[in-house]
Simulated assay, not measured.
Amino acid sequence: MVIYPAIDIRNGKCVRLLQGRAEDETVYADDPAEMARRWVGEGAQWLHVVDLDGAFEGAPRNTEALARICAASPVPVQTGGGLRTDTDLERVFAAGAARAVLGTRAAERPEDLAPLAARFGGDRLALGLDARDGKVRTRGWVGTCDADAPELARRAAEAGVGTLVYTDISRDGMMRGVNVDAMERMCRAVDCGVIASGGVSTADDVRALAALGCANLVGAIVGKALYEETVTLCGMRAAAGEP
């Protein structure tokens, strides 16, 4: 299992939002590329970058910052936030992203997934499945759609999307632990790789995920705990069994 340090960008800065609420923002660095260099220096094998302005506004707004991160990082970068059109995908790939995370577009237009996987490659696409109380959230987590989370996950996998990023919004930024049961259900629902997100804040959380024994649970995203320095990336990587 790979630990993905999260770099959330808003107004060009590295920030964290509590449960995705725009009004609950903490700024951790003026230059997101600075954080990328830090996490790579501590052994990160992947980075997870979110364009929060893009998620709220419906189109990428921090592509230049993404390009600086990719240029500063010798490891692959996964990114999402406002990727609603093919042009948006082309822009983030041109900026250097290795994988793009589709959230709102996938939930509202799942029929787009197979053509996108055929065009860009399923290994370069991920379904970003964000849920609160069992409801799939969209448009920067301020919208709700009628999609059934496990069914949408299965449909994406069948369309050729190679990775699922599953976030329990109620746990995000709260540092209260990961929803292990929900992660297990999602892993059992699909054959593609699954990355756990939301509440992963201690080495015990990582060990609990690993203990599920799900071969397709390939990663976990860690954000606030790293920035608040209640854990270290080295310690989280060790708990995950990263080489």
Rank of each mutant, 00 (worst) to 15 (best):
M1S: 13
M1E: 13
V2M: 12
A6T: 09
I9T: 05
G12K: 03
C14S: 01
R16E: 11
L18N: 13
Q19V: 01
G20M: 03
D24Q: 15
T26C: 02
A29I: 05
A36R: 00
A36I: 03
V40W: 00
A44I: 04
A44E: 02
V49T: 04
D53L: 05
F56E: 13
G58R: 15
P60R: 10
R61D: 04
N62Y: 01
E64P: 01
E64H: 07
L66C: 07
L66F: 11
A72H: 01
P74M: 00
Q78L: 05
Q78A: 03
Q78K: 07
G82A: 02
D88C: 12
V92D: 08
A94S: 11
G96N: 04
A97S: 07
R99T: 13
T104P: 06
R105F: 00
A106T: 05
P110Q: 04
A117I: 08
A118L: 11
D123P: 01
L129R: 10
G143N: 12
P150R: 13
P150V: 10
P150T: 13
E151R: 14
A153N: 10
A157T: 05
A159M: 05
V161W: 09
V161A: 08
Y166I: 15
I169F: 14
S170L: 05
M174C: 12
M174D: 10
R176K: 15
G177T: 11
V178Y: 11
D181H: 15
R185Y: 03
R188H: 13
R188V: 10
R188K: 14
A189R: 11
V190Q: 06
I195M: 03
I195P: 00
A196T: 11
S197F: 11
V200A: 11
T202M: 06
T202F: 08
D204L: 10
D205F: 09
V206Q: 07
L209V: 05
A211D: 07
L212S: 10
G213T: 06
C214F: 04
C214T: 10
G219F: 07
G223N: 01
A225K: 00
L226I: 00
E228Y: 03
L233I: 07
G235C: 03
P243T: 00
